[in-house]
C-alpha cells in the first residue's frame, strides 16, 4: 500500500450523572469532533447511560511525564486525612457518658442530656 488512510484519534469522556466528574471511556478514530461524537455514542453507550459526553482530539491532551509522575508517589500524608482522628469517636462517646466538670475533672454522675448527632 502506498498510501494509508489517516484519521485523528479522539479520546472519549462521559459523565454518568450531573454530580459526577467526566470519566475517560475509550477512544475512536474519526475525522471531526462531530463524527467522533456520533461514533462514540454508539460504540460505548449502547447499554450505559450518560448525561454528558466530551470528545477531545488526542494531540490536544497534555500528559504528565514519567519522571513527574514519580513525584506523585508521596511520603505518607495521613495527617491530611481523617485516618489519624479515628480515636475521636471513642472520646466523644466516653465524654457523653462521663462529662467533664468546668475545671476538667470528671463530673460526679450522669450523662449529658440529649443526643450527639453524628
Amino acid at each position: 500500500m502506498d498510501e494509508r488512510l489517516d484519521f485523528d484519534v479522539y479520546e472519549v469522556f462521559a459523565q454518568s450523572d450531573s454530580l459526577s466528574p467526566h470519566v475517560h471511556v475509550f477512544n475512536v478514530l474519526a475525522s471531526s469532533p462531530d463524527m467522533a461524537m456520533a461514533l462514540a455514542e454508539e460504540n460505548f453507550f449502547r447499554r450505559a447511560e450518560f448525561v454528558s459526553l466530551w470528545v477531545v482530539r488526542r494531540d490536544q491532551i497534555h500528559q504528565i511525564g514519567f519522571h513527574d509522575r514519580e513525584g506523585f508517589q508521596k511520603t505518607p500524608k495521613a495527617y491530611r486525612t481523617t485516618d489519624d482522628y479515628k480515636y475521636l469517636r471513642d472520646k466523644w462517646r466516653y465524654y457523653r457518658d462521663h462529662p467533664m466538670n468546668p475545671d476538667g475533672s470528671p463530673a460526679a454522675g450522669g450523662t449529658v442530656d440529649g443526643t450527639m448527632d453524628d
Binding site: W92, Y95, M100, G114, D117
Partner: peptide
Amino acid sequence: FSKYVHRIWSLGLTIPDPTLYQ
C-alpha cells in the same frame, strides 16, 4: 445547636448564654 451544644457541654465547657435551652 443540635449537633454541637451537647458535645461542648460534655467537655465541661460553658456556653456564654445562660438562656440556651432545648
